[in-house]
Design a protein around this nucleic acid. Sequence first.
DNA 1: CTATGTGCAAATGATTTGCAACGCG
DNA 2: CGCGTTGCAAATCATTTGCACATAG
Lengths: 143, 143
Amino acid sequence: MTQEKEVYYDYLSSKNIKHSKQRENILDVFLNAEEHLTIQELFEIVKKENKNVGVATVYRAMKIFCDAGLADEINLGDGNKRYEHKYNHKIHSHLICVKCGKLIEFCDERMEDIQSDVCSKFNFEPRDRRLQIYGVCEFCKDK
Amino acid sequence: MTQEKEVYYDYLSSKNIKHSKQRENILDVFLNAEEHLTIQELFEIVKKENKNVGVATVYRAMKIFCDAGLADEINLGDGNKRYEHKYNHKIHSHLICVKCGKLIEFCDERMEDIQSDVCSKFNFEPRDRRLQIYGVCEFCKDK
DNA sequence: CTATGTGCAAATGATTTGCAACGCG
DNA sequence: CGCGTTGCAAATCATTTGCACATAG
């Protein structure tokens, strides 16, 4: 069993939440997705395997996965919430192309220094962080 | 006349957009606001001075101000879009308290280095940047 | 058996749009 | 006068919620 599933089952028992086929389907689709999908996109994929699933269930499930620490909401500025994997992933940052919407992830260890400096300055206890750089990617630049 | 207004009038003429009393009211409220207001908040304030204004006009106006480079949308994660001043402001970052919603702005020059390094690595042309650090502020920590 | 989960449809809330009237230039 | 702008209400879109039924433990 994957570590993510372990985290999920632990979370379920710690919160007295029952298992369900639908939520399990949704989790599998989410965990196997390479990209950052919207609720609608997750819903379309899940529906292919299990025709009787409502969007509401996808909303409810993603909320649980976020609480469990497996997923994280991100907002790329196109007006749609998307979800990314959180468990066991380093905090990373995003380059977002404003022309084609392409997303590049990166990680720079200097961010940690900046965060700890500014947080101690303001006596702030950090929990999470997001960095997005908007611009034009190499392919769109040439056009 | 403030620099912001100059930018605004220049933008209007460059795009063949007419002046209007309502939009001018909205711009004044936006420019005088210390905090990052939502559309609804801007709307409430404008309505006090000019009873006959519709929300739609506020939406349309803020879109123009963003295009003109005077305003910027920000999303603090509470589900509400807010607007901040953009013209002549250094790119800054936000500490956001997840308990009380308080917003602290800061600016760290090391961000520029990180941005230029990662952008040259991916051949990416940066235009704008956002950094949000979520956590608990000094006042909420003690509770 | 009992509490929780589900699908559906209706409710909500934010934002957009169509339209006839209005007003800037 | 002519075209962009406005307020209003209706339309749209994402998300949430109430409820009767299904199901896990």
